[in-house]
Computed example of a mutant assay.
Amino acid sequence: MDVVSLEGERGDTASCLTYFETLAIARSAQLLDIGCRHGSFLENLRRRGYHNLQGLDIDADAVAKGEAAYPALRGRLHAYDGTVFPFEKGRFDVITMFDVIEHIAPVEAYLRELRTLLRPGGRLVFQTPNILIDVPYWMLALRLFNREKIAWMFREHCSLQTYGSLRRLLGRAGFQEVRIERNRSDTEFKKAHVRQTLGWPGLVILHASNHFPMVLYPNFWGHARA
């Protein structure tokens, strides 16, 4: 089945679907996507038979654009302030967070509160970049070679993690059975981005990164239980 994604979605929707589908999550699951933006990930799930879907994002304009493009998601995409969740505790079987953890400054407190939205044994599914790869990449890609630009980068990605710190963070937030895994790096989305920013040398590194040890893998994909 083809993957739909609106222009302006910031993440790799196809990769998120590829990873999600490895987890064999029931189509009846009550699911919340944090950082849903236009809702393309949720729309793809809907087309694959998932119907109990909700999304949250801090960008009200992005939510409105998504509801206009995906009429079946109207009333399921919600703008919020990034702190107060408009759902009752224990409502969801699954919460997804792709390219979100790194943007949240009080991230441990946020994850601890987020966990309360999951039923006991419910699952958090996530992806977040590796600080050891993310920082050098963006410094080269955006030519961030002065103090002001570097400070801007760390404001945008204020909670970047290593493999070890991510496991500890999730543990402190109360999650159990934490698994951090790989999902292929050289997707069409990533290749297009790297080709534009770093050219062919970047493409060589991107392909090689599929074989990097886990502590140096570009993005951490994983799941954990509430």
Rank of each mutant, 00 (worst) to 15 (best):
A79F: 08
T116W: 03
H103S: 06
W152E: 13
R182A: 08
I150M: 15
D186I: 00
T162N: 10
Y137E: 05
L111Q: 01
G164S: 13
F145S: 11
K190I: 08
A173T: 08
P86H: 07
T187Y: 04
F154L: 15
R182V: 06
R115W: 00
R182H: 08
S165D: 02
E181R: 13
E156Y: 13
A173F: 01
I101M: 01
Q127M: 12
V100A: 07
F98E: 04
D134L: 11
P136Q: 09
T83W: 00
I101V: 14
I101D: 00
P136L: 03
P136G: 08
C158G: 02
G90R: 05
L114R: 00
S165T: 15
E148P: 02
M97H: 01
T96P: 07
A69H: 10
D99E: 14
L111N: 01
H157C: 08
L160F: 11
R147P: 08
L169C: 00
F175K: 06
N183Y: 00
V178L: 08
V135R: 11
R184E: 11
Q176W: 09
E88T: 14
L117E: 01
L142V: 03
A151K: 15
F92M: 01
M139V: 14
W138P: 04
G164H: 12
L170W: 07
V94H: 06
L166F: 02
S165C: 05
P86M: 02
I95L: 10
D93Q: 12
C158Q: 09
G164W: 11
L166Q: 04
R155C: 10
